[in-house]
Design a protein around this nucleic acid. Structure first.
Lengths: 119, 119
DNA sequence: ACGATATTTCTAGAATTATCGAAATAATGG
DNA sequence: CCATTATTTCGATAATTCTAGAAATATCGT
């Protein structure tokens, strides 16, 4: 953890490793998946905390890492901080993994997924 | 790092996090990508070492983690240990990441990628 | 059995990460 | 301004990970 996400260039190994490492923790991965499910509406930190049931300081630590890695974005809404998955980053990461490996992989959603039900 | 890959069930968060964490290190990710590129031929540990230029003990440590996570498989060939990417695991992981997110993602290669040139 | 090659295991220090309570900061509504 | 809610920052500790040299193990050819 020593390099910020840039998005200016195609994903390099270091950036991909950074993002994979941040997703490589069960708490963070669960939080991230909740955000992916939530789509463009996102979730507040408190909502995530209620769903994951972990101490606030611990969750804050994990979310800040996801934000640092460029996988999650935050914006304040009153007293709450709303978190949203960065879908572009996700696609970039999947593309990186699939590159040189899975010729059939295509990611077609530029925007968040179809909203069926709120988390 | 406290749980072996099972493959008996659909990927769960813990297993996905384990595999993501193992890919979340630049040395391991580079080694893994070399193996993905190499396709079904794979590469020996020594060949990977020559390409990555890191001490043998360090590389051995990283490869053992990839093997432990189920991302790489090894088989002895004489004095060398041949390493191959586990493409099924890779597809499972990409599927897990894409699930609930990227409706357009499909991975179509069951077998290693088209062999164009050796690494 | 010996020597050479390939790779792992052992070991240990440095660095990073995870965890969480307590205190601090931010925003809102009286 | 005060109380309340939401979240982060601080601080401390335990645990894990990274790194790499040295020694050990495995395999082969002779």
């Amino acid at each position: 953890m020593n390099r910020k996400a840039s998005y200016l260039r195609a994903m390099d190994t270091e950036q991909a490793a950074t993002q994979l490492a941040e997703l490589g923790n069960a708490h963070r991965l669960e939080a991230y998946r909740l955000l992916v499910k939530a789509g463009e509406d996102g979730l507040s930190v408190g909502e995530i905390q209620a769903l994951l049931d972990i101490p606030g300081s611990t969750l804050s630590h994990h979310i800040s890492r996801l934000v640092w890695a460029g996988l999650v974005e935050q914006s304040r809404e009153g007293r709450s901080l709303r978190c949203r998955a960065n879908f572009a980053a996700m696609h970039g990461l999947i593309g990186f993994l699939a590159d040189e490996c899975c010729s059939g992989v295509t990611t077609t959603c530029e925007t968040p997924p179809v909203q069926t039900a709120k988390a």
